[in-house]
Simulated scan of single mutants.
Amino acid sequence: MTTKKGFDKEKPAAPILPERTATMPEIGEITRPPQQRPPVWVWVLIFVVAVIVLLVIMIRTGARSIGLGGMFIMPIMLVSMLMMLRNRGGGGNEKTKPAALNQTRVDYMRSLDELRDDVTVGAQEQAAEIAYHHPNPCNGSLLTIVGTGRMWERRPTDRNFGHVRLGLGVTRLRTIINPPQKVPPPEYRETSTAIAARDFLLAQNVVHDVARPLHLFDQMGWAFFAEETQRPLLQGTLRALVCQLCVFHGPDVVRLAIISDDLQSWEWAKWWPHVADPELVDACGPVRMIYSDVGEFMERFGEQWASRPAWSPPMEGQPRAEDHWVIVVDMPGANCAPLLRDSGYAGVAVVEATNDYSSPLATSATAMKFDAVGNLLRAREVV
């Protein structure tokens, strides 16, 4: 009944992510005054020698007070004391004093804390906007969309057409963080503020634990690899992918075909109108495009697709295919070469779970693999 019931689509307005810009404060700079001439130790030595000379004079003469002979020592002592005080803090740059440096560090860290609060607000808004377009399929959020204006909302002209949530990961922060403009040379950088600025840029430029989408039609297909014992996990990932595809994309823009040797696990897919054959019907209505072999599918559509253009990377302004297909092949050991031809078919995305390491999709650009604990990772090497 659900496949025959009409649906009037009224796409609601999506949340708008405001543009944000954050400017980091300038890092501290240490000014190194030129070496005083003569240095402090010279004046200390002069003062000590003058004191010794004065004491020797007093002892040799037996005088209890300084006589005229020792009066010349006093100006030398006075000048040396003044120069010691001047070089030790009576003059020079106030900013290089330890107390001033500590206060500069405290002020800089406080500025970074305030800036971090603004960046966090932008990251939270970005995470909410991503969750709106890619809700978690595990908590029933897709069911809340069915029957609303958001169901089948994505059209081929939308930027997120063909995007489905694949899991959680990190993404680049959209808030523009302007780094410090005046960076002193390494020998003049204040170490604490320079390290804090570096760590801030590295940590705050990404958003963690947000949905990461798979752009289905950006490649001619995608390959998923897993151990034999992980097949239920892999099938669960494919089911989530299919459900998101069918909730956000209407059957008039995307068709879905299932090829599997475990038809029982895909029995539920018959209720999606996306798997209805565009031409063939039986006593129950349109024939469901659920097949047990790749050859069976190609026997049905091979001739129709013979004149279909080859897949090419999407480009701005490039015309899209008239109809889009997603073919899920859940069959270990199956050969998907007929579905991919030499370079695939335009508007067709093959999602294969065959564990075929000789497949054209077994590349670092199109292959993903489950690790030992069940995390889905982009495969750098497929062996």
Rank of each mutant, 00 (worst) to 15 (best):
G149S: 10
N160F: 07
L101S: 04
D252S: 12
F301W: 15
A226F: 06
V146W: 07
R110V: 00
V383T: 14
A50K: 04
D117Y: 05
W311D: 02
A321D: 07
R32W: 15
A346K: 02
H208S: 11
E228A: 10
A127D: 02
F224R: 00
S141K: 02
R239I: 02
F297N: 02
V207E: 05
I290Q: 07
E228D: 13
R341G: 09
M289T: 03
I59D: 08
A63C: 00
Q318L: 09
Y188A: 13
E153Y: 02
R341D: 14
E267P: 03
A22K: 04
G250K: 04
Q181P: 04
G89N: 10
A226V: 08
M289A: 05
V207G: 02
R380E: 13
I145W: 07
I195C: 02
G333F: 11
V170H: 09
R378S: 14
R231Y: 04
G302F: 09
P186G: 06
M109A: 11
R105C: 01
N160D: 13
G347Q: 07
T2Y: 12
L78E: 06
P278R: 13
G162T: 05
S260W: 05
A365Y: 00
F47H: 05
D218A: 04
E227R: 13
M151G: 04
I259R: 05
